[in-house]
Design a protein around this nucleic acid. Structure first.
Lengths: 230, 230
DNA sequence: TGTAGAACTCAACAGACGTTGAGTTCTATC
DNA sequence: GATAGAACTCAACGTCTGTTGAGTTCTACA
């Protein structure tokens, strides 16, 4: 009980109205409780990651009994999966990428990625995903899908360049690292650099990964059957 | 108790010799128990991250009572700090960087970074650090120090280029993302690409971040007092 | 109007967790 | 050879965890 992520949680009390317990049973009118739970869950996962976020804490934030969460979602893991849904709409990237020439792809990818973090709803989902990915298979799998299946994989394959998957993961590695330093670690000066600044610094990197020359070693190895050395 | 990171832990038993308890009290001869604990701790933190790794599990792996760990290290957090010490020897980078021309700096930085992951002792420490960094201040602080104070900060400052800190964090972001995709997420084809391949793909990126032109937006903003938009 | 079932709460479970204090056995120093 | 203290184990503490089952109140449909 040294350093817990929960706020100052007085012994019990949760969300009861001043004195006496909230009565059990269904509430009159239509219920938006499920959404409240999901919002609280996303906030908790974003702040603390999968391991440190607790069902009890989420329940308290949503003003609800912990058991109700499991009534809806059956387990913490499934709650997490539900909370992560629709973290990113790949359509945005494609639309903007298609509208511009292929030589501006790098800048557009970086800008779209950074702008995706601006709306609080998206930001909270992405933070939850990233904070949890190091120790949670679901979150890491989600990142992998975004990179190789949903976003950058399709982009590089559409481009018709060789080494599509390698290019996709290279772009992904740069954006992943950027996001962690900027939004999770909040390390300066990257944390408070403007989007313009980052686009002009990192855009060319993404551009090269997407369409450029990846160097002789990469070329050779891709043509060979197995990979030497390591 | 859905998905724990611990192995198959039969109720008790830890490391007792078949039957009966191991007797208490000091063991004869010189003790290397402290080192055994640290090794087990590093392995656990590398596998599961700070939150999921447990003192009890580490104690079992080291063949020792949990209380002994706290006798040595006073708390889980301090155990973690001790386990992370000497994760990287910055001297390696400097020596190799000094030996080559400034136009090969990018390739050298990438290669040195990747090679640092090869020895199991270093690998396990770095994995522990990265796996824990998303939810643990100590680990993230350690990463920040490596980036801006111990390794890349000094390098960029020695180069005499403008925007030293920005360049340092940019290189750091690329290497951080690379390490997470390759060593934590093990996402292909990046996970099993050869070092040569990665050096020729990512080296130019690092080179540009270190000594190249970061683009007009970056230049302008660095000369102005405050940063606009955001 | 009756009834199935959804939406809720309560109380408890069993097990984990970090940490503590007291006790035992050895080593080093005088 | 006595003594301080380091190196260890044991048993327990208090708290927190995800999850369960039973009970209550409402809604929707026949």
């Amino acid at each position: 009980m040294t350093a817990r992520a929960r706020k100052a949680t007085p012994p019990r009390e949760t969300a009861r109205s001043r004195e006496g317990a909230r009565s059990p049973g269904r509430r009159p009118g239509e219920s938006r409780t499920r959404e409240a739970i999901l919002a609280a869950a996303r906030a908790a996962f974003a702040e603390a990651g999968y391991d440190r976020a607790t069902i009890r804490g989420i329940a308290a934030d949503a003003g609800v009994d912990p058991a109700l969460i499991l009534h809806y979602f059956r387990s913490k893991e499934r709650l997490f999966e539900a909370a992560l849904e629709l973290a990113v709409r790949p359509a945005d990237v494609f639309a903007r990428a298609a509208a511009a020439g292929p030589d501006q792809l790098g800048a557009i990818v970086v800008r779209t990625f950074l702008e995706a973090w601006q709306p609080p709803e998206t930001r909270v989902r992405l933070l939850a995903m990233f904070r949890s990915a190091m120790t949670n298979e679901t979150a890491m799998g989600r990142i992998r899908d975004l990179l190789v299946r949903e976003v950058f994989g399709p982009i590089t394959e559409t481009l018709g360049v060789p080494d599509a998957q390698l290019r996709a993961t290279l772009v992904g590695s740069q954006l992943l690292g950027l996001a962690i330093i900027r939004f999770v670690g909040r390390i300066e000066p990257l944390a408070s650099a403007s989007i313009e600044e980052l686009v002009s610094a990192i855009g060319p990197t993404a551009q090269r990964y997407l369409t450029g020359d990846l160097g002789s070693a990469a070329q050779e190895e891709r043509q060979a059957t197995g990979s030497p050395a390591r």
